[in-house]
C-alpha cells in the first residue's frame, strides 16, 4: 500500500508521467516501471538447473553474463504455458542483479499520470497483491502494475542466497 501511495505521490509531485512497459501473462495485461527494464529478448534455450523450483527455467547467456530466467506464468500457475515466437524474456535489473522473466508477450510502453493510477485490487488477478503497486487505467484497458523489485527479491522466488537459506 505504501508503495502504491509513494508511486502516486511521486507522479503527483513531479507532475510528470511514469513510463511503464506493458506485457501480458495469459489474458491479463501487466506493466512494470520501464526504468527497471534493461532489454527485451526472445526466449532462447536456457540451461536447466537441477534441484530448483520449476518456475526457475534455468540460466541464460546474456552477452557473457549468466542470468537466471524465471517464468512468471509457471510461478503464478497460469493455465497455458507455451514457448513460441511470441514468448519473450524481459531482462530487468534489480539491486544490481540481472534477472530474465518469461512473459507471453510485450505490447507497448505507456506513460501514466497520477490520476490514472488506482489502488491495487485485493483479488481478481493471478499475481498476489503483495507484489502489485496499483492498477493503471488507460482508456478501456486495465494494467496491473507490478512491483517487480519486491517480487523478484521476495523469498518465494528463491533467486537470492538469503532467501534460499
Amino acid at each position: 500500500m505504501s508503495q502504491n501511495t509513494a508511486l502516486r505521490d511521486a507522479t503527483e509531485k513531479s507532475g510528470e508521467r511514469v513510463e511503464f512497459l506493458v506485457f501480458s501473462l495469459g489474458e491479463e495485461e501487466y506493466a512494470v516501471d520501464i526504468l527497471k527494464v534493461q532489454e527485451i529478448r526472445g526466449y532462447d534455450n536456457v540451461t536447466r538447473i537441477a534441484n530448483t523450483p520449476d518456475f526457475i527455467k534455468g540460466l541464460a547467456n546474456l552477452r557473457g553474463v549468466i542470468v537466471p530466467v524465471v517464468d512468471l506464468r509457471i510461478k503464478f500457475r497460469l493455465d497455458k504455458v507455451e514457448y513460441n515466437e511470441q514468448t519473450v524474456v524481459i531482462v530487468v535489473c534489480i539491486e544490481e542483479r540481472i534477472v530474465g522473466i518469461v512473459v507471453d508477450g510485450v505490447s507497448d510502453a505507456m506513460s501514466l499520470t497520477a490520476e490514472q493510477i488506482k489502488p491495487a485490487p485485493e483479488f481478481g488477478v493471478s499475481m498476489p497483491v503483495d507484489y502489485l503497486s496499483g492498477l493503471g487505467s488507460v482508456d478501456d484497458r486495465m494494467l496491473v502494475l507490478v512491483d517487480i523489485e519486491r517480487l523478484l527479491t521476495s523469498e518465494e522466488m528463491a533467486l537470492m542466497d538469503s532467501a534460499a537459506s
Binding site: T47, I49, N61, V65, V67, R97, L159, D161, A164
Partner: peptide
Amino acid sequence: ETNYRKVPGVSAATILGDGSVAL
C-alpha cells in the same frame, strides 16, 4: 551468485563455444 545464488552440486558456470551456459 552474481545474479543468482548457490546451486547444490554446482560450483560455478561457464559459457561454451556455442554460446550456451554449462554448469
